[in-house]
Structures are given as structure tokens and as C-alpha cells.
């Protein structure tokens, strides 16, 4: 291999690594706040990308129906809760958020000339469809069993993943798709040719990470999430609702997932089930960080990206084997550095 190829591979690796880093951050966040190991993270990547594809093709994205269905269900559950506790005043809000929002969105999607909209508007619409599924998912699936052991939550996560992949096939079909690049520009950087999309991915990742950093450091909601992550009961005693913390966390995770999908869609062909492998690589990175440390997880993500890029050059058939086997020395290292936990829960 010459320096040209090495640089190209490094560029590839860092681009993918940036996406894995975003996903790893979301996974660490979700686990810390809710103890949910968020396997369906990858599905948000695929849903985000493929919803954008449908919008660009001028069709109303099928994911809208999932949003509507989940909204109606959540409205029913919340309305029942509100009536049972005699809070009739909450009904209007419950209906507006869970049913009103998807209905307005549906009207927009049917009314607008989707295919000819500017790219940022298309992206915005895709996010508006996919991201609210995060908090709805928390409300319907995880909130009723928020106190369950980690193991049960994990099995539920896997079940959600399996179900969402099935729905993905139904919504998007078995064909893979790519979206046009955000920018066709190419730059000469020394001996290296840099793609515009690469710049987009890396820049967007950095902006998102900084935004998250500010959110957690400066805003009251961010601090509430951090408090919940550190001590669930303590945070609850301070008036932080665990349900709110859960929904907010899932909102962020869904946003990160869908945005990652939108960013990566011009680089990789996305199929309905591609998200899982992408998400799992985020997991490998998150495990490097012990599901607790954000900076180490981000570094791990770049490592995973580079490893993947270079192994696809040297031993392309074994690319996935190498990346997923990486987890074993990592676990070994973790098992020597982490203290022995005797009793779970």
C-alpha cells in the first residue's frame, strides 16, 4: 500500500468513525440514564436515511404511519392514565402532542412538493418524522418496565430491534438506496483528495458533540439528565421525573441516530437492515468506553472506523470478523480493570 491509499483509507475510517462516535455517545447516554442497552439505535439510522430517500423520491414516507400509529397508542395510554387520576385538564395536551403533531406533519407531507424542496428542508422533514418515534418508543415500550432488571430491558431492546427491522422491510422494501451528496465539492489537501461529504460528516459530528456538551453543561434539562444518570433515586427526590428523563434521552438518541443516517446515506448504500451493523459498531466503541466514558467511547469509535477501513483493504472478506472480534480483547482488558461486581441490581 502506498501513502495515497493509506490516506484514503484513513479518511474513510475517520468518516465512519465519526458516525460511530455519535452513535456510541447516544448509547452511553441512554444506558446511563435509563439502563437500557439501546440495540434499536441502528434502526433509527436506517429509518432516518431511508425516510429521506422516500422524501427525495417525492413519496410520502411510510414511516409516517408508524409515527401516527404509535402516537394514537400513546395518546390512548396517556388519556387513560389522565382520566384514571382525574386530571381531565391534561387530555388536550396529550391529544395535541401524540395525535395532533403527526396529523399536522401528515398534512404537510401530503401538501408539499417533496421531491423539489431544498435539501435542508427535506432533511428537516425526515427528522420531524423519525425523531419523535424515540420518545414515543420510550413511552410505550420502556416506561412500563422502567424498573426491570438490565437483562430484561436488553431482551426487550432486541425484540424492538427485530420488530423495527421487519417494519423497515415493509416500509422501504428490500432494495438499498443512496442519497445524493450534500456537497459535490472536492478539496486537494496535500497528497489527499478530500470529499465534500466527508467534511460534512466530520463537521456535523463535531458540531453535534459540542452542542451535546453545551446541553449537558449549561442547560437545566441537560443537568437533570446527568443527575439521573448518576443517581436515579436521588434525582427523583430532587423532583426530576424519571419518565421525562427517559423520553428526553430517547429523543436525543433518536435525533443522533436519524441524523447519522442522513449523513451517511450519501457514502454507503443503506438497506432496511443496515442500521444494525452500524449500530453494533457504535456499541463496540461504547464498550471500549465501558458504557460510561464519553471521550473514551469517541476515541474507540474512531479506532473502530480505522480498523474497519484498513481491514477492508487487507482482508476484505474478514472485515466484519475483525471488527467484532476486537470486542474480545477489549472485554478482556475491561475484565482486568473493572472491579468484580458481585450482585447485579
Amino acid at each position: 500500500m502506498d501513502i495515497q491509499i493509506a490516506l484514503l483509507l484513513a479518511q474513510d475510517g475517520i468518516t465512519n468513525g465519526a458516525i460511530y462516535a455519535l452513535l456510541a455517545l447516544a448509547l452511553v447516554l441512554v444506558f446511563a440514564v435509563t439502563r437500557v442497552i439501546f440495540i434499536p439505535q441502528g434502526e433509527f439510522v436506517a429509518y432516518g436515511a431511508l425516510t429521506l430517500v422516500m422524501i427525495q423520491a417525492g413519496t410520502v414516507p411510510a414511516t409516517l404511519w408508524l409515527l401516527l400509529g404509535a402516537g394514537v397508542l400513546a395518546a390512548a395510554v396517556d388519556a387513560r392514565g389522565a382520566l384514571a387520576s382525574g386530571q381531565k385538564g391534561r387530555l388536550a395536551g396529550v391529544l395535541a402532542w401524540n395525535v395532533g403533531y403527526p396529523a399536522v406533519l401528515a398534512a404537510l407531507l401530503y401538501g408539499l412538493p417533496l421531491a423539489t424542496l431544498a435539501l435542508p428542508l427535506q432533511v428537516l422533514l425526515a427528522l420531524l418524522v423519525v425523531v419523535p418515534m424515540g420518545p414515543l418508543m420510550y413511552r410505550l415500550i420502556y416506561q412500563p418496565i422502567a424498573a426491570a432488571p438490565v437483562l430484561i430491558l436488553l431482551i426487550v431492546s432486541v425484540a424492538v430491534h427485530v420488530g423495527m427491522v421487519g417494519l423497515g422491510l415493509l416500509f422501504f422494501g428490500a432494495e438499498g438506496s443512496r442519497t445524493p451528496a450534500f456537497s459535490e465539492a472536492r478539496f486537494e489537501l496535500g497528497p489527499m483528495l478530500v470529499n465534500g461529504q466527508t467534511i460534512w460528516v466530520i463537521a456535523a459530528s463535531i458540531v453535534l458533540i459540542v452542542a451535546l456538551y453545551l446541553f449537558f453543561g449549561r442547560t437545566i434539562y441537560g443537568k437533570a439528565l446527568r443527575a439521573t444518570a448518576m443517581n436515579r433515586n436521588g434525582a427523583r427526590l430532587m423532583g426530576i421525573s424519571p419518565a421525562l428523563a427517559g423520553r428526553l434521552t430517547f429523543l436525543l438518541a433518536a435525533l443522533i441516530g436519524a441524523l447519522s443516517g442522513v449523513l451517511i446515506a450519501p457514502i454507503t448504500t443503506i438497506y432496511y437492515d443496515t442500521g444494525f451493523l452500524i449500530g453494533l459498531k457504535g456499541f463496540v466503541a461504547a464498550i471500549v468506553g465501558g458504557l460510561a466514558s464519553y471521550p473514551i467511547a469517541a476515541a474507540g469509535a474512531v479506532l473502530v472506523g480505522l480498523l474497519e477501513a484498513f481491514s477492508s483493504f487487507w482482508a476484505s472478506a474478514y472485515k466484519e470478523v475483525i471488527v467484532f472480534t476486537l470486542i474480545i480483547p477489549v472485554l478482556l482488558w475491561r475484565s482486568f480493570t473493572s472491579h468484580h461486581v458481585e450482585e447485579e441490581e
Binding site: 442497552i37 453494533l280 456499541f283 466484519e320 474480545i328 472485554l331 475491561r334 475484565s335
Partner: peptide
């Protein structure tokens, strides 16, 4: 595999099994 992962607390084991489950699958195929 057990010596590598069983020492860890609850959730690492299933995550580890997902990882080597995929690895072995790809290995069978390649």
C-alpha cells in the same frame, strides 16, 4: 469465550455474545 466475558457484570455478556455470534457467522461464510 466464557473466561473472557463471564467475569464481567450482567450486560457485557449478552453484548459479547452478539459480537462473537456475528464473528462466527461471518467466519462460517468466508
Amino acid at each position: 469465550l466464557g473466561s473472557l466475558t463471564l467475569r464481567l457484570s450482567g450486560h457485557y455478556l449478552p453484548l459479547g455474545t452478539i459480537a462473537w455470534g456475528i464473528s462466527l457467522y461471518f467466519l462460517f461464510g468466508t
